[in-house]
Each structure stands twice: as structure tokens, then as C-alpha cells.
């Protein structure tokens, strides 16, 4: 994601294009305000994440005391998780699903995307509308085909986890 580059200058332009690019992206100008914004964005992203980590390091009574820093930090919760065979199974399943769905989606979607973007074809608008809307508007409760009553299958949380955005 971070490797997205705006454009690849042709060799003879490379040296010339570099200088104005740097100037244009404005390195030193707006600094004070931009830095305030950088800090605000960082804080907004990190504070809930910090709270999550903070909670994960607590146990017992200190969980309900709302301390900003755990007074007796413990890694016990992590130990419990990694000793749980179900977690490793779930991790394996997630990896398999992620790899397979990403591969399938990328392979098939790149063909379709090329055709929709570059080739002439009939009913393009209809196909585009279908592709964009159907998968993202599927009714959620009918999607997870597991029973919330079957606690043994352990999929109660998966149902809710997968429903709004997969």
C-alpha cells in the first residue's frame, strides 16, 4: 500500500522531474499546523488501540478499576490464548480463508475489471451495477450459515464478526 507511486518518469525526464516534485509536495511550509494534525490523527488512531492493549495486560480486579496504566501488568492473557488449541485452529482457518479468497478474487476480478474498463461490451452499466452492489448489499443475517444455538461449533462470535464487513 505504501508503495503506490504517482508516476514513473521516463529516464530522460527522471532527473528533471525530481526537483519540482519535491518543491510541490511542500516540505517545510505548513509545518506547525500540519504537525498538529499529524499528532491529532495519530492520537485518534492510537488511543483506542492503547486502551485495547492496556486492557489485555490486566486481570482480575484491576480490569474494573479503569487505570490508565496497568499497575500489575501481566502477559497471562496472551499465554492462555496461545495455549488454547482452538485459537491455533481458528488462526489456521483464517489464514486459509484469507489466502484463498484473496487469490480467487484478484484473479477473477482483474479479468472482469480489465474488460469493464478497457473493452467495449454490451450492458456494461448493468454489469458494473451488479458487481458493485450485489455482494455488498447481501442481507447479513442470512449469510452466516451457522447456528448461534450450537455453542460447540464456536461460531456465535463468527456470525457477528463476519456480518458487517468481512
Amino acid at each position: 500500500m505504501s508503495t503506490l507511486t504517482a508516476e514513473r518518469p521516463t529516464p530522460e525526464l527522471a532527473t528533471r522531474a525530481k526537483a519540482p516534485k519535491r518543491r510541490l509536495r511542500g516540505e517545510a511550509k505548513l509545518h506547525p499546523m500540519v504537525w498538529v494534525f499529524v499528532v491529532a490523527v495519530m492520537g485518534f488512531s492510537l488511543i483506542p488501540f492503547y486502551w485495547l492493549v492496556n486492557t489485555s495486560l490486566k486481570k482480575g480486579a484491576s480490569l474494573s478499576q479503569g487505570e490508565l496504566f496497568p499497575s500489575q501488568p501481566t502477559l497471562e492473557n496472551y499465554l492462555v490464548v496461545f495455549q488454547n488449541p482452538e485459537f491455533l485452529l481458528a488462526l489456521r482457518n483464517s489464514v486459509i480463508i484469507a489466502v484463498v479468497t484473496t487469490t480467487v478474487a484478484l484473479v477473477f476480478a482483474s479479468f472482469a475489471a480489465y474488460a469493464l474498463a478497457r473493452l467495449k461490451m454490451r450492458r456494461k452499466a448493468m454489469i458494473l451495477t451488479l458487481i458493485l452492489s450485489v455482494p455488498r448489499s447481501r442481507p447479513s443475517p442470512s449469510r452466516p450459515r451457522c447456528s448461534p444455538f450450537g455453542a460447540r461449533s464456536g461460531c456465535t462470535t463468527r456470525c457477528s464478526a463476519s456480518s458487517s464487513r468481512s
Binding site: 474488460a115 461490451m121 454490451r122 458487481i131
Partner: peptide, 19 residues
Amino acid sequence: DRAERKLAFRMTAPSLVIM
């Protein structure tokens, strides 16, 4: 044009089937 349309159809069909 017809060949292009045919190609376009062949390229989108697998996605549509999966969907």
C-alpha cells in the same frame, strides 16, 4: 468490435458466475 465484445464477455463471465 464483435471480437472485442466477445472477449469482454469471456473476461467478465467467470466473475459473474462466482457472484
